[in-house]
């Protein structure tokens, strides 16, 4: 089980695309910083559906996107730390 950590917007970086190329169905994806913005986009929503998607709450609040992204699981930094332990490794793309 891998925690895939994406920090940069999908509009600027291939990180999310590459993560999806190599992901296993039991892995998780954590979106932080501008990477959260892709969840506004229908195409990315459908490409990500079926995966365990987590979103760093402070990055969502900072951008005023709470209600728009309310369907996704928001996590704190303490949850982020805990997730790195429940997964075998973290890949920061």
């Amino acid at each position: 089980m891998i925690l895939h950590h994406i920090q940069v917007s999908a509009a600027q970086s291939a990180a999310l695309k590459l993560c999806l190329r190599y992901i296993n169905s039991t892995d998780s994806i954590l979106l932080s910083s501008n990477a959260v913005n892709c969840l506004l986009n229908k195409e990315w929503q459908s490409r990500l559906s079926g995966y365990n998607i987590l979103v760093l709450e402070d990055d969502v609040i900072a951008r005023g996107l709470q209600s728009r992204l309310s369907a996704f699981k928001m996590i704190s930094y303490a949850d982020f730390v805990a997730l790195t332990l429940t997964h075998n490794k973290v890949i920061s793309w």
Binding site: I2, Y22, K89, I91, S92
Partner: peptide, 13 residues
């Protein structure tokens, strides 16, 4: 490549 990522200890991108 996905299997290789699972096999190693750490991955640095």
């Amino acid at each position: 490549i996905a299997e290789h990522f699972n096999h190693v200890d750490e991955v640095l991108v």
